[in-house]
């Protein structure tokens, strides 16, 4: 990935260690990680949950997805799921989608790298983001 000078995304200051580890029976009532994920999805029109950061993606699928969004000059928020495995667990439980990256537009799951690629190649993604 080449460095992107135009910084087309807003880094999302989501705390990697938001709360003490939940006890198994407390996880239902209070789930600060899930709440933070829901809030982040609601607060950003376009948000990508990825491994690593847009400048330093830690996985080829995340890198490809970032590159497509940047090619379309779409401003997006990004969340790195790697600092805490619970981010990924909660995200996948919420979205019913097992893999990373996950792209959300207007609060809805668009898909992972495969679907984003198909939509990019067909022009659907450019249309959805315009």
């Amino acid at each position: 990935m080449s460095a992107d000078p135009a910084s087309q995304y807003q880094p999302l200051p989501m705390s990697a260690r938001p709360a003490p580890a939940p006890t198994p029976d407390a996880s239902e009532q209070s789930n600060p990680i899930r709440d933070a994920i829901v809030q982040a999805i609601e607060a950003h029109k376009l948000i990508l949950f990825m491994k690593g950061t847009p400048e330093a993606p830690a996985c080829g699928f995340s890198a490809r997805t970032v590159a497509m969004l940047q090619a379309l000059e779409a401003p997006f928020a990004a969340v790195d799921v790697l600092p805490d495995p619970r981010i990924r667990q909660e995200l996948s439980a919420l979205s019913q989608w097992p893999t990373i990256p996950q792209l959300f537009l207007d609060g809805e799951l668009v898909g992972g790298c495969d679907i984003v690629t198909e939509m990019y190649e067909s022009g659907e993604l450019a249309q959805a983001l315009s």
């Binding site: 989608w97 893999t99 898909g111 495969d114 679907i115």
Partner: peptide, 27 residues
């Protein structure tokens, strides 16, 4: 929809996706 189609395939493997199966690129 595309999302549901992919979910149907992912569901075959459950928690193995992201575990023993690191990546399953789908079409």
């Amino acid at each position: 929809g595309r999302i549901e189609q992919h979910r149907l395939v992912y569901a075959v493997f459950g928690s193995e996706i992201g575990g023993a199966i690191h990546a399953l690129a789908l079409k």
